[in-house]
Design a protein around this nucleic acid. Structure first.
Lengths: 159, 159
DNA sequence: TTGTTATTGAAAATCATTTTCATTAATATT
DNA sequence: AATATTAATGAAAATGATTTTCAATAACAA
C-alpha cells in the first residue's frame, strides 16, 4: 500500500494526549482490535482478541477504555437487544464517518450495516426532529433506527 | 361513564383462556396496573404497584407474566438504554393500537410518546423496508425508532 | 532518574433478569 | 361439591454483563 494511513497509533496518541489522557498499551491494543476487526464487537469479544497479544490486559480495563472511547466519540456503542453492548469505531481509516443504521437478525444475531436509503431517512429525520423539537420543546441529540427480522440464511432455514 | 369498556378483566380472561393459559390473580393484578398506570413501567415499578394490593405476588411472577404478555402481544417491551426494560399495554381501552415512537430524555429519563409524523415515517419505513428486503433478502418484522436528547425541563435547567 | 498521579488488574459488588424446585391453586373431571 | 391434574407461583439461588474497590503499576512531567 502507498501513502500512509491518517488514522492509527500516532494519531490516536495525539488525540489522547490532547484530551489529557495517557496513551497506554492496553488502550492501544483495544483500539487496534477495533480497527482491524470489522463488525460489532462485544466487550468480551474485544477482551478475547486483545488477550491473544496482551494476556495481562483485564476485562475491566476493556470496559473502562470503551467507556472512555465512547465519551471521546471515537467509538459508537449499540444495543441490539441481546443483553450485551456492541462497539465499533466511529471513523474509517481516513476519518470519514459512516453514518449507518442496522438490520438485526432476531434468529442468529447477525447485524448488517446499511447506508442505502439513508438519504431519505435523513430527510425524514430532519423534518421529524424539527417538528418534535418545536412541539415538545425537546432538544434532539441523537437517534436510533433499527430493523429486526430474519436474515437470508435464517429465512432459508425456515425459522 | 356510559357503555361498557371493551377491554378489562373479562376480556383478558377470554384472551388468556383462548390461548390455553390460566387467568390468575397475579396476572390480573399486573394487567390492572398496566391498564391504570400510564407510562413506561419497569418490572420493579409494576411489582411495587401490584404489591400494594397483593403483597404476596413475587417479582419473579411479574417477570414471567410480562414475558407472557409480550409474547401474546398484549404488552410492548421497550429499552431506553438505562439498563432495565420498560413495559406498556399494546392497546387502549377500546382496543385501538397506538403505534408510536419515543423521545427519551438523556438527563432525567423521561419518555415522551409521539404519534405525530408517524404517517411520514410509516411511508418512508415502507419504502426502506422494501428496498432493504430486496437488497439483503432480509425479512423485516419490526423496527425501533427513538430520539434521544433533552426534555423541556432539563433544557431549562441548562443541562 | 525520580516523583506524581492516572491507569491498571484482580476480586468483590451490583443489579436486572432467569432458573430451580417444592408448593399452591385454576380448571377439568368425577 | 369433591377431587385430580398440572399450570402457575414464590423464595432462594444462579446467571451474566457491567461496575466498583483498592493496592500495585506505569506514563510522563520535572
Amino acid at each position: 500500500m502507498h501513502g500512509r494511513c491518517q488514522r492509527g497509533p500516532s494519531w490516536w496518541q495525539g488525540k489522547f494526549r490532547g484530551c489529557g489522557y495517557r496513551f497506554t498499551v492496553p488502550r492501544m491494543a483495544i483500539l487496534d482490535v477495533l480497527n482491524i476487526t470489522s463488525g460489532h464487537l462485544s466487550a468480551e469479544d474485544i477482551y478475547m482478541n486483545v488477550h491473544k497479544d496482551y494476556p495481562n490486559v483485564g476485562l475491566t480495563t476493556v470496559y473502562r477504555t470503551l467507556e472512555l472511547l465512547v465519551q471521546m466519540e471515537l467509538v459508537v456503542r449499540s444495543d441490539f437487544g441481546d443483553g450485551r453492548a456492541r462497539y465499533e469505531l466511529n471513523q474509517g481509516p481516513k476519518g470519514e464517518r459512516h453514518h449507518h443504521h442496522h438490520l438485526v437478525c432476531t434468529n442468529c444475531g447477525r447485524v448488517i450495516d446499511y447506508t442505502d436509503f439513508i438519504k431519505d431517512e435523513i430527510e425524514l429525520l430532519q423534518r421529524t426532529e424539527k417538528g418534535l423539537s418545536k412541539k415538545y420543546n425537546f432538544k434532539i441529540d441523537s437517534h436510533i433506527i433499527q430493523f429486526y427480522g430474519l436474515c437470508e440464511k435464517c429465512r432459508r432455514k425456515g425459522k
